[in-house]
Design a protein around this nucleic acid. Structure first.
Lengths: 248, 248
DNA sequence: CGCAGAATTGATACATCTCAAGCTGGGTGG
DNA sequence: CCACCCAGCTTGAGATGTATCAATTCTGCG
């Protein structure tokens, strides 16, 4: 199954689905050509580990399709997710020899990998890649800081609502639907993965999801399919500023 | 007092204390010269606000001396620190018109500010600044992810020990002392600021500091002056891997 | 059909928060 | 010079939210 995907994904940068958002977004035709020479695709099945923290890592990569996670694990097994990688997101750090986090495919996953050494050379010779990477890294830093507020100060209910809102927003964004009206999406994470994202236990996640359902904030079809009839109602549960709202 | 500092800090990039670590670290003489033209110093007293989240911000800056914090505040007043800025750290985001976080001076502070527009132009015309900024941003992202593990999964005691270890490490780093033997430093944060850093209440911070003292992990002289006789003992309390340890 | 992984639900324990009362030390004005 | 004052801090007692441990119940699949 995994090798299947490999076949169906185009190897031409020109019609790559993440062409305009990934680290290569700003590249000119000649730069793309040089990237083509050092790239290769790798596929992973849902659940597979891409790389373990501490392992030698001689590539960097873009997520093409599917979802991956970055997690840290403490000696006694406590786990915290520290990154959720969607299509076009970048994995790996130029100049670092080993992986700093466990990288796991949570869905079937295709990555566009670049051999690290030549990628680094390309980065220093052409500014477009470094420029785009800086932009993406700054975005990730902002996301990490919002995540820190969630982990440090939000209640369990607010955490769940926030995660649902993030996924809903991303999904509507990808589907180019408006953020008004009913929003429907599938959770790409298990309850345990949600717990690792939010700094909770899976039982608490389950309870709070049930509570939001009971309170009419969300509807569920099966365990993973979520329907949000009133997105503003969900936003009110996140604890965030209702900006674009009454004040200002 | 604040204007005092302004006088004592050199305006020559050549002998600037953060010359080799800040965003300008990689700059050649001619690039420095262009930076000189768009830079100016600003001083703040301990406790002063540098900028409020949402305010227009037409400069970016490096911390020269002192310590500043980035914090997010929720509508009901819950606060989470999301950045601790030490000398050489960078503030602001090129390309963004407003501040995303509250920036506060926790000690007397001197910043080297660059007017944003010319700085952005300089960034796109010379790669050295963007290169260094990318490196610094990647470091910050790593720090943010370690911070996320702390916020999501560590106990109150582990959080305190981790913060003390971070400050101790930084201090010995700045003073070029070895990490062995007694380490002595002053806490640059109040109990409340520590709480905002760690996602705790100030009462819990106070209790856990007292507990670490009672258990002989640290000693206190006054409220702020900390003595760590055995750094490894402190590290054991952080919950982190004791790397360089027994295994591997 | 029946099994295994995922999810839910319940009962209880416990860590941290909340509210409240003092303490401490450095600065100030009488 | 002393008494007072106040912000920062500590400590206590009780409340509460989340974790933990333990049963079930779903759900998809061989």
């Amino acid at each position: 199954m995994a090798h299947h995907d490999l076949q169906t994904v185009s190897h031409e940068c020109g019609d790559c689905p993440i062409r305009h958002r990934a680290v290569c977004a700003r590249c000119e035709a000649d730069e793309l050509q040089r990237l083509e020479q050092i790239k290769y695709y790798r596929s992973f099945q849902a659940g597979q580990t891409v790389i373990w923290s501490g392992d030698r890592m001689d590539f960097v990569a873009s997520v093409v399709t599917g979802i991956a996670t970055l997690t840290q694990t403490m000696e006694d097994g406590r786990r915290q997710m520290v990154g959720l990688l969607l299509p076009s997101d970048f994995v790996g750090r130029p100049g670092r020899p080993t992986a700093a986090y466990d990288v796991t495919a949570t869905t079937d996953l295709v990555m566009c990998c670049f051999r690290k050494k030549p990628f680094e050379e390309l980065m220093s010779s052409t500014p477009h890649i470094a420029q785009r990477l800086l932009e993406m890294t700054l975005d990730e830093l902002d996301a990490a800081r919002e995540w820190m507020l969630l982990l440090g100060r939000k209640t369990a209910r607010e955490k769940i609502a926030s995660l649902l809102a993030i996924i809903a927003r991303r999904d509507t964004h990808l589907k180019l639907k408006s953020a008004k009206g009913s929003i429907v999406f599938d959770l790409p994470l298990t309850r345990e993965e949600m717990a690792d994202y939010l700094g909770l236990t899976l039982e608490t996640v389950s309870r709070q999801v049930s509570a939001l359902k009971r309170d009419g904030v969300i509807e569920l079809e099966g365990k993973r399919h979520v329907i949000v009839r009133d997105f503003d109602k969900l936003l009110e549960e996140t604890g965030d500023d209702t900006d674009g709202g009454y004040l200002v």
